[in-house]
Design a protein around this nucleic acid. Structure first.
Length: 714
DNA sequence: AGCACGCCGACT
DNA sequence: GTCGGCGTGCTC
């Protein structure tokens, strides 16, 4: 008998025998579909079929993994269409209620399917249906690594533990312990400049929590994968007798499965991870800490588009536990909540080591002719001075590749991507090939790679020149200016090969590198004690960007990268920022390292123009063959919204503003035109009530769109 | 996501 | 004539 026939018979039996007692389960299926599915629960598994149970369900001609959410609610479908659950996966841990609630919250808030959210954070390994043979092996593996940790405990390593806190830290710790108490929901911002010793303070807070709650688990979110190894080491030396699980997308499948299982079974007391870790089931969660709270990487760019920070706050609230948001430059959403006294705030005003704050200088970026490989005289002198002192310099440029575009000096041709509204970026090939050009053109949007043309495709001119510079060209230029220096480059391209990023970071710590060239990746968190000079090659692109969040991001990036300089007591840090707009007010606040002053101006502007956090946004996006078609389809969505608005008073929905559809900032990617439609409201609940009324009706329009809640980039 | 169905273009 | 492109619809 085929699976399909078998299930038909089963469901017929179920309906025929005793319809009233047939029990149904709402199941999140492992699919990126914005919906859950109803299944009948066969009598013999009814006892095991509880929310959080793992099940195998029939799916079309095959089977799929699912997780039970609700049991007993009436199905939305006629009973004859409902098939029964195939079996319960008994060896899998029943997922905790807190996790079920979090997933339900996120699916509702982000207007997504349960399955899409629920299965998003579960390691691939557990989603395979034939994993049964391996699961015990993994459990054993988990046990052995616990033993390994225990063994490490016995060989007492010197612990940072005994290091004295300074008076500001001691005071901050006291306040933190008082405001962020166990067993009670609170949101506390730990606000301190880079190097003020936030880490020390929150480690002590974690220590306190671990003592207060004998089984309690702590979730710690960090923005960058590169930061986890150092943090893991630190935590392991700090808490040698606690099991620490690390979770991020670049772990090997086996490691990720092991860590996840340790967290889900409550064996791991501390769970460190990037944004995906917010979806880890934690049966005994006792507190949450988010480091670099403002970082945009906590927002997922793909499918469910969730903000791990916002989800974590909602999670803490639902579970009645404290959450701490640490940052030197909190997001304006967070800072506004501090000003409104919705969040508590603990301040750390000084650098803990006693090192002075870095001296930040803005220098004028003249015409290209006055520069050496894009660097001003002052910048070159600053790097040379660092080399002379046998200290390190970091040269920051937020653009990877060799040059952002190539250009024909005769006819003005630019290396436009054929499939995207973007330029192809000139890159040095990753490995030297025997034949052909050492360069290639790469589109950063569709990832298409082509050989650079030998002559201009429109006029035949052979004189094609790279315009501007990225990390690779800067590295080359620096090698020319400082032939004796050891230079390393760290950007997404360099970090692509596994282990390379960690090797460069280790080399920098060991003093085997004199000049570090890199992007964002280098700006965050690292504590290079011999680094005393930071150069920011070009801060201008973000100064006049159309994005209202650009100044906020620029300020925090510059503060963060500045914070890399002079982390040791005896080596004061200096920062040189090159700009054509030295008079810009952002720089005034930056040189004074006055986050609060800067935030006040930004908040004032946002309030005046009713931008977030003074309004709440949702964004419809869709793709079509042409931009006209995409706009036309979005207009149909808008029209429908306006029809709904006309009926709003009768339906009890408050007013929201539906803007006009516009092309996305990059209008075409990989040959597909993209457009967006912004929805705004001054009230978050109003916006969500509106969307809940609107979205189901839009299904009938037969359009393929998706929605993003609280978008970061518009 | 898969997978089926269905309707138009260039190929042995 | 068909093979196959991917647009559309469905999965409890």
């Amino acid at each position: 008998m085929s699976l399909h026939q078998e299930s038909k018979v089963l469901s017929n039996n179920l309906t025929a025998n005793n319809q009233a007692s047939v029990c149904y389960a709402k199941v999140a299926v492992d699919l990126p579909i914005a919906r859950h599915f109803d299944y009948a629960i066969p009598e013999e598994i009814r006892a095991l079929c509880v929310p959080g149970a793992w099940v195998v369900v029939p799916w079309g001609k095959g089977r799929k993994l699912g997780i039970v959410f609700n049991v007993g609610e009436p199905p939305e479908l006629p009973p004859e269409k409902i098939r029964p659950i195939s079996k319960i996966v008994e060896e899998a841990p029943v997922l905790p209620r807190s996790w079920i609630q979090l997933v339900e919250f996120a699916a509702t808030y982000y207007h997504r399917g349960l399955g899409e959210v629920a299965l998003n954070g579960i390691p691939k390994f557990f989603k395979q249906l034939d994993r049964k043979a391996n699961i015990t092996a993994f459990e054993k593996w988990g046990e052995t690594s616990t033993k390994a940790t225990k063994r490490a405990k016995q060989s007492e390593t010197p612990r940072d533990h005994d290091r004295q806190l300074n008076s500001a830290q001691t005071e901050a710790l006291g306040t933190l312990i008082n405001t962020a108490q166990t067993g009670k929901f609170s949101t506390t911002v730990l606000f301190g400049v880079t190097g003020s010793g936030k880490t020390e303070v929150y480690l002590r807070w974690l220590e306190h929590l671990l003592q207060m709650t004998p089984d309690g688990q702590i979730l710690m979110l960090v923005p960058e994968i590169n930061l986890t190894p150092a943090l893991q080491k630190l935590l392991e030396s700090y808490f040698p007798d606690q099991r620490i699980a690390v979770l991020h997308s670049e772990l090997a499948e086996g490691q990720r499965a092991t860590s996840w299982l340790a967290a889900a079974q409550g064996r791991a007391r501390i769970v460190i991870g990037t944004r995906l870790a917010v979806l880890t089931p934690l049966p005994n969660v006792a507190a949450i800490l988010i480091d670099e709270e403002h970082d945009p990487s906590f927002k997922q760019h793909e499918a469910p588009h969730y903000s791990a920070r916002d989800m974590a706050i909602a999670f803490a609230q639902a579970q009645g536990i404290p959450i701490v948001l640490a940052s030197a430059t909190p997001s304006l959403e967070t800072w506004n909540a501090v000003l409104n006294k919705r969040y508590a705030c603990v301040r750390l005003p000084e650098r803990a080591t006693g090192a002075a704050s870095p001296d930040i200088k803005i220098v004028h970026l003249g015409s290209e002719k006055t520069l050496q490989h894009g660097l001003t005289e002052q910048a070159v002198a600053a790097i040379r001075a660092a080399l002379d002192r046998k200290e390190q310099a970091l040269v920051f440029i937020n653009r990877r590749g060799y040059a952002p575009v190539i250009h024909c000096s005769a006819c003005g041709w630019l290396s436009q991507c054929n499939n995207c509204t973007a330029y192809q970026v000139l890159h040095r090939k990753p490995t030297k090939t025997i034949a052909g050009s050492p360069y290639q053109l790469v589109c950063h949007h569709c990832a298409a790679i082509t050989n650079p043309p030998r002559q201009c495709p429109t006029c035949g001119n052979v004189d094609l020149v790279p315009l501007g510079r990225g990390t690779q060209r800067l590295e080359e230029g620096l090698a020319e200016i400082f032939p004796e220096a050891r230079i390393a480059r760290l950007d997404r391209d360099a970090a692509q090969r596994k282990g390379v990023a960690q090797k460069i970071i280790a080399d920098a710590h060991a003093g085997n590198i004199d000049i570090l060239v890199g992007t964002q990746m280098l700006a965050k968190g690292h504590d290079f004690l011999n680094l005393s000079e930071v150069i920011v090659v070009d801060a201008d692109a973000a100064l006049f960007s159309g994005d209202f969040r650009a100044p906020e991001r620029l300020f925090s990036t510059l503060m963060q990268v500045s914070g890399r300089a002079g982390r040791a007591k005896d080596k004061p840090g200096r920062v040189t920022i090159q700009s054509r707009f030295e008079e810009h007010p952002l720089f005034t606040y930056l040189t004074a390292q006055d986050y609060e002053g800067f935030a006040a101006t930004q908040i004032e502007e946002r309030q005046a123009s009713l931008l977030p956090p003074f309004s709440f946004e949702a964004l419809f996006r869709l793709e079509a063959k042409t931009i006209e078609l995409a706009i036309e389809q979005l207009r149909r969505i808008k029209d429908h919204g306006e029809k709904l608005m006309a009926e709003a008073p009768t339906k009890g929905i408050e007013h929201v503003k539906v803007c006009d559809p516009i092309p996305m900032p990059i209008a075409k990617v990989a040959g597909r035109a993209r457009a967006q439609l912004l929805i705004e409201s001054s009230s978050r609940p109003a916006l969500h009530r509106w969307l809940s009324a609107w979205l189901p009706e839009l299904k009938d329009l037969g359009l393929r769109w998706h929605i993003e809640i609280d978008p970061l980039e518009i």
